[in-house]
């Protein structure tokens, strides 16, 4: 089994914890308490091996375990975030499609991750717009009086994601729409990275032990993704 550390970042009350809860427990709780410090959850999923044509055995599902750190969103605690995202393999940066400012916060998180994480290319970042259930299907910005409606344009966010080489999704933790895809996409990408790494390492050396050491050096992770424990 492959293990990856994933961290959720984003402004307060955009639905980070709800996305995790939807993913891990497939449930939704309107009255979730705010997160203080960070919450930890884990979830294992199975993905199809991408290169099934090679070998029959590879046709089996690949188990991927996410260790998820769900952080507190308030600005005040921002200085603590590095404690949680250090050694992360993936980050889900969340904003609220009905709160304009939350995308700006999300952008600052992306910038921070890009600047602080040593191996920028390897960190998989997914930008996620949450709460699309609050946008009535028929309309665009500010149509209904009761609902704040969409405040963040889909294209704006999508373009930003493209420019910065991020994965991108709009989801609803409440209905569950799109949540699964976020994590499956990340898992697939991480697995692809691992295969590439393995291939590289194979060229370098034939010894298995050396391979894992190399990876450990390049990313001093406590949850070394290459450690297989199944």
């Amino acid at each position: 089994m492959l293990q990856y550390k994933l961290v959720l970042l984003g402004d307060s009350s955009v639905g980070k914890s709800s996305i995790v809860q939807r993913f891990v427990k497939d449930s939704f709780d309107e009255q979730r308490e705010s997160t203080i410090g960070a919450a930890f959850l884990s979830q294992t999923i199975k993905i199809k091996s991408p290169n099934k044509d090679n070998d029959q055995e590879n046709d089996e599902d690949i188990a991927i375990k996410f260790e998820i750190w769900d952080t507190a969103g308030q600005e005040r605690y921002r200085s603590l975030a590095p404690m949680y995202y250090r050694n992360a393999n993936a980050a889900v940066v969340v904003y609220d499609v009905t709160a304009k400012d939350s995308l700006n916060k999300a952008i600052t998180w992306v910038d921070e991750l890009k600047s602080k994480v040593d191996d920028e290319k390897k960190l998989v970042i997914s930008l996620v717009g949450n709460k699309i259930d609050l946008i009535s299907s028929t309309n665009d910005i500010n149509e209904s009086a009761n609902s704040p409606g969409r405040q963040v344009d889909l294209l704006d966010a999508e373009n930003f994601a493209k420019e910065h080489n991020l994965l991108f999704h709009e989801v609803s933790a409440k209905t569950g729409k799109g949540v699964r895809d976020v994590f499956y996409e990340i898992a697939t990408l991480l697995y692809k990275q691992k295969l590439e790494d393995d291939a590289l390492n194979k060229k370098d050396t034939n010894e298995n032990e050396d391979r894992s050491i190399n990876v450990a050096l390049s990313r001093p992770s406590t949850n070394d993704p290459t450690s297989c424990c199944s």
């Binding site: 307060s12 009350s13 009255q31 979730r32 308490e33 705010s34 308030q74």
Partner: peptide
């Protein structure tokens, strides 16, 4: 806004 958000999800049990 910040207060409102947190009060709404405070000890609702």
């Amino acid at each position: 806004f910040k207060i409102d958000k947190d009060v709404k999800r405070n000890d609702r049990h």
